[in-house]
Design a protein around this nucleic acid. Structure first.
Lengths: 348, 348
DNA sequence: TAAATTTACGCAATCGATTCCGTTATTTAT
DNA sequence: ATAAATAACGGAATCGATTGCGTAAATTTA
């Protein structure tokens, strides 16, 4: 198989009797090239099948019009939507998107981070792995003036762009919602507390209880490692076997919430009347399962779009690594069957 | 903010009194460099914080150690898993993954295709958009000897690598399963018939009916445009209002199948006893919903891994554009509640 | 009409890694 | 001991696009 030779600006230059400089400038609409010449060159480029070599341009400019994305896992509804939002926004501006997943391992995060760095990405969008505590591997980007946007699972001690939701308020409101449904013994499925999003959700939960004059029952606060289905099932079983089982659960994600609903049903506990459940994320499953799952909706795609926009708008800015710019998005409580009691117990 | 200067092989050369050639060779374990020198250089590189510039290497070699992925949408369970499989495999070999989504628009597919081409990807993995009929935009890759792997939604008239599942057998077996459950009036939710996967699934469905001596009822075969939830609801309503409604549905995807189950429940039709339903894909939702959805499982992540492997193994091969190499993966019927009738009707 | 701009373009260096040819030492074969 | 082979490395061109600086011609200004 013969490889067809690529057309370069030098070929165009020779063909049209212009210098490569002029060709390059014309293709980039440089103002010092006359409009006629630009048209002439662009038409010829089109006809000769010229295609720019991004690698060459990238080498010269030391950047690649590429946004790097570093997340835990792609096949999670939230992450997939996030990437989708990033990709759409980036591509409109002619940027490519490089993805890599850490599978929630710190080690992978570091090596992927380095690989993205070597690819001279224009900017990096990160949602931290579950394990990550140290963030030194991101420092080299700062030193190169490459913008970093942390999304959702963000570090606390790192100045950069951040795009998050108001986890505290979401946790508070979700818990309040259960209280309004008449729950008095509300359990919480808490995520790893070194990830601030989970910490905030828990704080919101605790404050909602306090503000409503409800006691905080230590045995009803379950700390999860990964908020998986299995963990959720186990926790739910244990809770429901208590002498005084909970009458409501606020789970920090939908996966665990779903497991709680299903486990309760299996154990003959009525959802929502004996146990009201609200999750977090509004995974597709939430609206389909029976009973449908109340949850907190998370504007994933929008967060992706905003993150990408941050990177795109950054170029040219001088990077102030002492500054943190946070974008906080609102969430929405989606009230579905799993939390809407038919018979409300009297409020305390 | 001062930008820290990057360390290049020239810096290393100066520092160690070697030529850039030697540095380059040492870092690539070239055999004509002594082991001692290699170790010396690598240690120094490590210490000085050297990081290779992929753009420069890519320019020189005219490739970028990057696999391009072109799919319809990222936030679909199947696609997300596919990408996940690609990414994992690629990264282990030091390859990056560029993603782009067509949103099922032909126009987007073409422009994304060109963008990936310009980025000098090592290989391309594609799942065609719903609209795509013409595949001329992929031709330039062939001309450059860049391997293309079509996955799942593949073209018929294009020689290259293909990774698919046996859609015919899957459709046949799924339909057979319904027949074994006693269904005699089985409807089919068919996808766009110019996408071969949907054509094959339908063929399997038709042949299963024939082989079982069941009549093919035209009014029970519904052709969808996108197999969306809304389309599914509409189709189900219409079917159930027929004088002789179906007692089973084989849907070409889970989304439409789910909508059928829910619609039936709303209309007071018992699933599975009055209407058995089986979907396709084994989306996460299938196992969670009630009744849980029978479906055909699709090894998405594995397909991604195999596709990536095809690209990685291709390098060096001479590309025979007259050859098509197809990898066919098996599927599995997952029998869940939505199709397991308690009371089997007598078989015809 | 001479001087000052402006317009439109060319020259050549540059980005960093790779690789085809050499060129010395050093070892092996005869 | 001398020719032949091998090991270990250097020189310099190359990939394709970009851009600071320079220049000739065209236009405007005084």
């Amino acid at each position: 198989m013969k490889i067809k030779k690529e057309v370069t600006i030098y070929d165009l230059a020779k063909e049209l009797n212009y210098s490569p400089s002029t060709i390059s400038r014309a293709l980039n609409n440089h103002k010092s090239i006359s409009k006629k010449t630009i048209k002439l060159i662009k038409d010829a480029a089109q006809e000769m099948g010229y295609r720019p070599n991004n690698l060459a341009a990238g080498l010269r400019n030391n950047k690649s019009n590429t946004i790097g994305v570093l997340i835990s896992r792609i096949n999670r509804p939230f992450m997939a939507s996030l990437i989708s939002g990033i990709e759409e926004t980036a591509r409109k501006e002619g940027y490519n998107v490089l993805i890599s997943q850490s599978n929630d391992k710190y080690e992978n995060e570091v090596s992927n981070c380095n690989a993205l760095y070597d690819s001279r990405i224009t900017g990096l969008i990160v949602s931290l792995s579950m394990e990550t505590v140290d963030t030194a591997h991101f420092q080299k980007f700062v030193e190169q003036g490459i913008p970093i946007v942390f999304v959702d699972r963000v570090p606390e001690n790192f100045n950069s762009y951040k795009v998050v939701i108001d986890n505290y308020t979401a946790g508070y409101t979700a818990t309040k919602h259960l209280i309004e449904q008449g729950c008095t013994r509300i359990a919480h499925f808490a995520g790893a507390q070194h990830r601030n999003i989970y910490e905030e959700r828990k704080k919101g939960y605790l404050d909602a209880l306090r503000d409503s004059g409800l006691p905080i029952l230590e045995e009803l606060v379950v700390h999860f490692k990964t908020l998986s289905f299995e963990e959720g099932t186990k926790a739910t079983k244990k809770l429901l076997k208590l002498d005084a089982p909970p009458d409501g659960i606020f789970s920090a994600n939908d996966t665990a919430a779903v497991s709680a609903v299903m486990c309760a049903k299996k154990m003959g506990v009525e959802v929502p009347d004996q146990l009201a459940v609200i999750g977090f994320n509004d995974d597709p499953i939430a609206s389909i399962m029976q009973p449908s799952l109340s949850t907190v909706s998370h504007p994933a795609s929008k967060m992706g779009a905003i993150s990408a926009r941050r990177i795109l708008n950054h170029s040219g800015h001088n990077y102030d690594s002492d500054l943190t710019e946070i974008t906080v998005l609102g969430t929405e409580i989606i009230q579905r069957d799993s939390s809407m009691k038919k018979t409300k117990a009297p409020t305390v």
